[in-house]
Each structure stands twice: as structure tokens, then as C-alpha cells.
Design a protein around this nucleic acid. Structure first.
Lengths: 147, 147
DNA sequence: CACCATCACTTGACTAGTCAAGTTAAAAAT
DNA sequence: ATTTTTAACTTGACTAGTCAAGTGATGGTG
């Protein structure tokens, strides 16, 4: 058996690229005292607030435990508030986070966009998006092969 | 300013997909008592052994510190050996790891490949690979915009 | 030959996440 | 009205990684 398929080459590229661009995004966001993961969570809260931890966890595809820890950090930094509301905790942004996001969002958008705008035409980007959408959607309903 | 560009949509898909498929890969590799990160490192060692930690770190795009920790774990599990050799540490696989890799490699290759083979034609996969290669290569020489 | 720089690696303090067991408060059942 | 169940969240023990300060052996220079 040969030890490479197109699929496995794509997989590797994808992993290395996301890893790399994630680090660069962290470096970029450092000027706002944010990490990529934090930005991602704050964006979701801003869009859907008020919401519960369960809902948020699902949106950012992290476990319950992961979101709990992340929110503890964000709360300590004064970006969000959680209030016990019935048996659920309702999350919303503070003024501080609201203000920061207003400033960061357009910059981060431009930063992300530049990874693609710099090297691909509009048409190519559409193709890439379409292909990745199909791959992603398929992966969501994929099952792990049995032992 | 609108809050989405094609680029940012691609970015999100890429992040979510790699995150998702990484978790699935971890689940898959559990039967061999390996994680995706460990498999990735072992593959590189197998291909280039004997090599130094610096070289390895670069191949898997992790920092010096990261590779040091990873190798400590792999050594504890008996997968690799490090021997002080001049002022460098030379890494190589143990028999145990060699045997496991022989078994895991084709399965993991098939697993990775299935993410794409299931939904894209050969032609589409080539297109996706070409586009991602360009994006990835560009990102490697990209600079973080100044403050 | 002693001293200092340098290179390869390690380590302490973090972020970010996983899983599984442990809380806690409201709902349902007896 | 007390007990049990359940849903939402937390936490302990890990993996995986970052950065920056700390080792330790090698090798050049005064």
C-alpha cells in the first residue's frame, strides 16, 4: 500500500494551515489582550446573548467542561457575567467586552480574510468554500469505523 | 461594514472542520492507545529517524518546549528513546512503536482519506488540494500587520 | 587554562481543551 | 412533604501546547 492518498495530503495541509493561522491570529489579537479562542467565544455570546452554557458549548464545539473553564477565565478578566437564572446560568457581555469587540471585530475580519484574498480570486474562494462546506457537513454525520 | 466575507466563512469552516476531525481521529486512535498528536510525532520520527528535537519540532510545527514535553510522555509510554549524543539528543522509535505504527498507519491513512473520498470526486480533491496548498504556502510567509 | 558565549534542551506558569465523577437546584414521584 | 431523578454546571486529573527563564555541555577567546 502506498503511504499517501490525495485525501491524506489534504488532511495534513488543513491541519498545518489551521494550526499556523491560529497561532498568527493569537499573535495578532495580543494587542487587544485576547486569544483566538476567547474571541471566538465572545463573538458567539455577542451574537446570541443571553444564552446558556450548553447552547454556547454547542456553538463553539467544545465540551461542557471546556466552556465552564473558559467562562471562568473570561469572567475573571471582566468580559462576561453569568447569573443564575432558574437552574441555568445566563451569559452576557459586559460593557467592557462590548466596547472591545466593536473595535476588534472589523480588524479580525480583515485579518482572517487576508489569508485568502491575497492568493485566491473571488471565484476560487467560492469553490474552496463550497468544497469545504461539503466536507465539513459530511464529517458532522460521519461515524467512527467499528473496531 | 458587513460582518462576513467569503474569507472569514472559509476560515470558520476550516477551524470547525479540523477541530471536529481531530476529535474523531482521537476517538479512532483510542483503540491503539494513541492520540492524533502522538501519531503525528511518531510518523515524523519513523520517517526521519534518527533526528534531533529541533528538527522534529520544526516538522510538526511545535515549539521546543512543546516537543520536549511530548517526548517525555512518549518516552514514559515506551514508544521512543532519546540518547545524549554530543550536545544533541537523538530520537528514535522503539521496537514497540515500530510494531504499532506498522499496524496503525494504513488504518489511519484510510480514516483520513475517507473524510474526502466519501464526498468529493478525484477531480474535486485535486482542486481542493491545489487551493489549500496555495493558501498554506502564502500563510507561511505572511506577516502580522503592524499595530 | 579559566571564562564566557552559545546551542540544545528542560521547566515553571499559563491557556485550552478532554473525560468522568461530583454538585446543586428544580421537577416529578411516592 | 419527603425522596428520587434529572438537567446544568463544576472540578480533578490529564494531554497538548505557549513563552520565557533556567540548565548544562561544547567550544572559542583572552
Amino acid at each position: 500500500m502506498r503511504n499517501n492518498t490525495i485525501g491524506s495530503l489534504i488532511w495534513l495541509r488543513l491541519m498545518r494551515f489551521t494550526n499556523q493561522s491560529n497561532q498568527m491570529s493569537n499573535e495578532f489579537l495580543k494587542r487587544f489582550d485576547l486569544t483566538t479562542a476567547q474571541f471566538d467565544v465572545l463573538i458567539q455570546i455577542r451574537t446570541y446573548q443571553p444564552l446558556t452554557q450548553m447552547e454556547l458549548a454547542e456553538k463553539v464545539t467544545v465540551t461542557q467542561g471546556g466552556i465552564s473553564r473558559m467562562l471562568t477565565r473570561l469572567e475573571k478578566e471582566g468580559y462576561i457575567v453569568r447569573k443564575q437564572d432558574w437552574k441555568t446560568k445566563t451569559i452576557s457581555l459586559t460593557e467592557k467586552a462590548e466596547a472591545i469587540m466593536e473595535q476588534v471585530m472589523p480588524e479580525q475580519l480583515a485579518f482572517q480574510t487576508s489569508f485568502f484574498d491575497d492568493v485566491l480570486s473571488e471565484e476560487e474562494q467560492k469553490t474552496l468554500y463550497a468544497l469545504m462546506s461539503r466536507v465539513h457537513k459530511h464529517s458532522e454525520k460521519k461515524e467512527i469505523p467499528p473496531e
